[in-house]
Structure formats: C-alpha cells, structure tokens
Simulated scan of single mutants.
Amino acid sequence: MREKRSALRIMILFVCAVATTLLYLSGCGGGGSSAGKGTLKLAITDKQSDDFQNLVISVKEIRVVPAGHENAADDDPALPVLARFNPQEKVIDVMTLQFVQQALGELVLPAGTYRQIRLVLYPNPNGNQAPVNYLTLKSDPNTKIPLTTPSGQQSGLKILGPMEVKPGVINAVMIDFDPNTAVVKRGNTNEYNLKPTGIRLIQMADVLTQFGSIIGNVSSTLQNWSSATVSIKRRGSINDTTPIASGQIFAGYTSGKWQAPFSAFVPASEPGWGYKAFVNSNGFALYSSAAVPVVQGQARDLGEIVLVPQ
C-alpha cells in the first residue's frame, strides 16, 4: 500500500454517565476531580482514502479511561461507558463522512485527565455470513474484505491520549484514523488487521459543524523520537493563548526515518488571521510553522516537518 497522508477521522462528542461511575471517579486520583464536571461530545468524520472505497466498523460500546487506570480490565468500575449500541445500531462506514460529522452521543465526566478511549467492536460472524467489520477497495468495490480486529472485540481498540476534561464546558475530542498504520495488510494475503497504533486523539476548542483541517508529517532521520504534541493556534488579529486544537502523535520507523502524520480540525480562517502549528517533542527544538489560511471542507497540507535535535 503506497504512502499517503489521508486519514479517517473520528471526532468524539460525549454527554451523560451512570451515577455510581461518576461517584467512583470523583473519589479516585486519576480522572476524577472534586472541582466539577465537564461534558465530552461524540461525533464521527472522515477524510477520503486513495485505496479504500468503504471502511465499515460495528461499534458495541465506547469507554473512557481515567489517568492511572490504563491497564484496567474492561469491567472495571473506574471505566465509565460513553455509549452502548445494539447490533446494527452503529454500523458506520467512515469513508462516507468527508468533512461531515455523525453524532454518536454525549457524556458528563468529572474534570481531570483521561489517558485512553476504548472502542469495543462486535465480532465478525463465523462461516459464510457477511462481516460487520470490513473494507472494500476502490479497485474491487463489490468484495467485502473482513477486518481482523481481535483486540477490538476483547479489551477494545485502545486509543492513547492524553485528553483533558475541563469543568463546566463542552470538551470536543477527535479520534483520527490513519489508514496507512491503522489498517495493515497481512503479508501477501488479502487479509487486513485494524490496529490502534494508527489512531490518535485530537482535542478541540469547540464542537464544529463546518470545518477544514491542517495536516502534515513530522519526521526525523537523525534521532529517534517516541511522541510529540501538535498544537494549533490562531495568529494575526487574533492570538490564542490556549490551542484551538491539540493532540499527541506517536512515531514509527518507516522508509529510513522516525515519522508520524498528524491532522487537526479547525474552523475556516478569516481575513486578518491564520493558523500556526507548533510541534513539541522532548530532545528537539520547538517547531513553529508560518501562519496559514484554512478553507472549509479542505485540508491545508504543511508537508514534511523535520524535527531538529536540541
């Protein structure tokens, strides 16, 4: 599969939890906080792929993991359930949602830091029944190729944070799928695995009904790096103190360098100001882009961002 920066994006909007779970969390030292509660909202969006015609997942439930509970079992009461779905209720073809959001639900949580989102999927049926998690290729759109998702049906696809839930406000978080690393072909077979290593969380300043995106690829050939934080701020007649979008990316070694793509979803810019991207990774100088405009429904590509060791 050739390299590309296209990404399947899932923006997560969340609101409403079980009272016992909230009480448990408000007393624990991880995600809970007595300072108040915030609202997370859930929706899903996507950017087109060069290779895939459809990419369908069947979501059973969504869980959020407070800091300190990253290794907790799925039935641990410290893990609040964002939503549960019946079979066929949330069968989502993410490839149909380019710069469009499909709402999935909402959840109120204690303010604090959360480290994972877990997507638990329904298993594909055995035998000759049609799969519920599958992809089709643009070169062969009529053949459903089952996705192998063992962790998705057991402990859930573990999507790494962190993300902050601030009290008294709506907190919007985007789940961003990169098909180059999230969907992996198995050798010379016609089988594909769905892995969480290619899925990222992006924290946003607000819920967006209309938006564009900023994309790029962070890399280094001189020194290994494990993760970086990408933040987007407005610059010009508006100068943000708090990022309008931020997220953590994780490097993989491919094509002779340590690299990771990123994407951030933001409203269209206006005359007088644009967006700057900042990339911060331990051991490297802070990267700051030029201020660039963003158009609704389009991706602004910053190209290759090469980290410079300090």
Results as ranks from 00 to 15, higher is better:
Val15Lys: 12
Gly31Ser: 13
Ser33Ala: 13
Ala35Pro: 00
Lys37Glu: 05
Gly38Asp: 07
Leu42Thr: 12
Ile44His: 10
Ser49Lys: 04
Asp50Phe: 02
Asp50Asn: 10
Phe52Pro: 02
Phe52Val: 11
Pro66Arg: 10
Pro66Asp: 13
Ala67Tyr: 14
Ala72Gly: 12
Asp76Arg: 05
Pro77Asp: 10
Leu82Arg: 01
Phe85Tyr: 15
Leu97Tyr: 10
Leu97Gly: 01
Gln101Asp: 13
Gln102His: 14
Gly105Arg: 09
Leu107Tyr: 00
Leu109Ile: 07
Ala111Thr: 08
Ile117Gly: 01
Arg118Lys: 14
Leu121Gln: 07
Tyr122Leu: 09
Gly127Pro: 05
Gln129Ser: 12
Pro131Tyr: 05
Val132His: 02
Tyr134Gln: 13
Leu137Trp: 06
Lys138Val: 04
Ser139Tyr: 01
Lys144Arg: 15
Ile145Arg: 08
Gly152Glu: 06
Met163Glu: 01
Met163Tyr: 06
Ile170Lys: 06
Ala172His: 05
Asp178Gly: 05
Pro179Arg: 09
Val183Lys: 10
Lys185Trp: 05
Lys185Asp: 04
Thr189Met: 08
Asn190Met: 12
Tyr192Gly: 03
Leu194Gln: 03
Thr197Ser: 06
Thr197Pro: 00
Ile199Thr: 13
Leu201Asp: 10
Met204Arg: 14
Thr209Asn: 15
Ile214Ala: 03
Asn217Cys: 01
Thr221Lys: 15
Leu222Trp: 02
Ile232Ala: 13
Lys233Asp: 02
Ser237Glu: 14
Thr242Lys: 15
Pro243Phe: 01
Ala245Tyr: 00
Gln248Cys: 01
Gln248His: 04
Phe250Gly: 01
Phe250Cys: 00
Ser255Ile: 02
Gly256Gln: 08
Ala260Lys: 09
Phe265Asn: 08
Pro267Tyr: 02
Gly272Ser: 11
Trp273Ala: 04
Gly274Pro: 06
Lys276Glu: 15
Lys276Asn: 13
Tyr287Asn: 05
Ser289Ala: 02
Ser289Met: 03
Ser289Asp: 03
Ala291Ile: 03
Val292Phe: 06
Gln298Cys: 00
Ala299Val: 14
Leu307Ala: 06
Gln310Ile: 08
